[in-house]
Computed example of a mutant assay.
Amino acid sequence: MRKIYLLLFFVLLAARAFSQDGITVCHTSSTDKFAVFASNKKFNREHPTPRPYTHVSVEGGKMIQYKTPDGQDANAYLVLNKTKTDNWIFVFQEWWGLNDHIKKEADELFKDLGNGNVIALDMYDGKATADRTLAGQYMQQFKQERGDAIVKGAIAYAGPKAKIGTIGWCFGGGQSLVATLNAGKQAVACVIYYGMPVDDVEKLKTLNTDVLGIFASREKYITPEIVKKFEANMKAAGKNLTVKNYDADHGFANPSNPIFDKAATEDAYKTTLAFFKARLK
């Protein structure tokens, strides 16, 4: 009997080690899957420290607070169009938090879109870092219930007539899709940059918009196999998904990332902008 217990102990120990190093993901939600990644040392090591960057906001760009349905306040970086418009882009951060790089992305989208408002949501409630260990902790501590409340508060802030597009990178890529589901009929466009997709076909059936997925073919985490499964799930849900794969690594579109791929980023952004413009007229 003792031998059986010892055998079970070593089997469990091996399984635990495999889940740590091989990143076995058995959770159902995209948020839980990213939390598993954040606990993995290899995943953390492959997120180099961002290059220093200080952003100077466009005219009108500012931090705001708004109420959320769970009785709390949320933070966001907002750029409002001088001409009243119901077009909105919700921007979702990488695992670093709402930092100056994300504010820069929001400003660029605002300028290039030309006919919309852009709001970058603070999904970590004021926490941001350039330390990958802390970033991993923040991502693990994130609760989707709070994230949903932040998004729903932003939808209420934008108003019932708002037409909402979403975009995010890495952790924010998954949140972009979740936010689109939360936006219901107000959603008009969703862009995911190398984020973990929702794999529940029944949830995907409730999508009200097309999805553009920007992925990296050299990914070790949001792998080509995960992307193919996402394509199959979207097809099963009867929804339209456009996928663009780049010969690049995870995080390639972040200019503050040492592995930044300028050519891939410019092409992906051109595709993203066209996607939004076609749906936010």
Rank of each mutant, 00 (worst) to 15 (best):
A183M: 13
K82E: 10
T223R: 11
G71P: 14
H250A: 01
F142G: 01
F230E: 11
L98E: 06
K185S: 13
Q175C: 04
W95T: 06
T85H: 11
V178N: 14
F110D: 06
F90T: 04
L134E: 14
I119P: 02
E145L: 04
P69H: 03
Y66G: 02
N75H: 04
T49W: 03
L280H: 02
I102H: 08
A38H: 05
C26P: 01
G97K: 08
T271F: 04
E46Q: 08
D86Q: 06
L98V: 00
L204F: 04
K228V: 09
T49Q: 14
L273W: 05
A278W: 00
T206L: 05
R132P: 05
G116E: 02
T83C: 04
L207N: 02
K229D: 10
K111Q: 15
N182Y: 09
V151D: 04
F252T: 00
E105T: 14
T31L: 15
T180P: 03
L113D: 02
V178H: 13
F142V: 03
C170T: 06
L204P: 07
K229Q: 15
T265F: 06
V201N: 06
L8V: 14
H55L: 01
R132N: 15
A189F: 06
E105V: 13
K84P: 00
L121F: 10
T54G: 06
N245F: 03
I64C: 11
M1V: 06
K277R: 13
P69R: 00
K42E: 08
A156P: 06
N99C: 12
I192K: 02
Y221M: 09
A15V: 13
Y221W: 15
D199H: 13
Q72I: 01
P50G: 10
A35G: 10
A274T: 15
K42Q: 12
I167V: 14
L13N: 01
F18W: 12
K220F: 10
E225L: 07
L7G: 12
D261M: 09
E145H: 04
T242L: 11
G195L: 11
D261R: 11
F260E: 01
Y193N: 07
I4F: 07
A189V: 02
I155E: 07
A14H: 07
A274P: 13
H250L: 01
S57L: 02
A149Q: 09
E145I: 02
Y193I: 00
V56G: 08
G238M: 04
A253S: 13
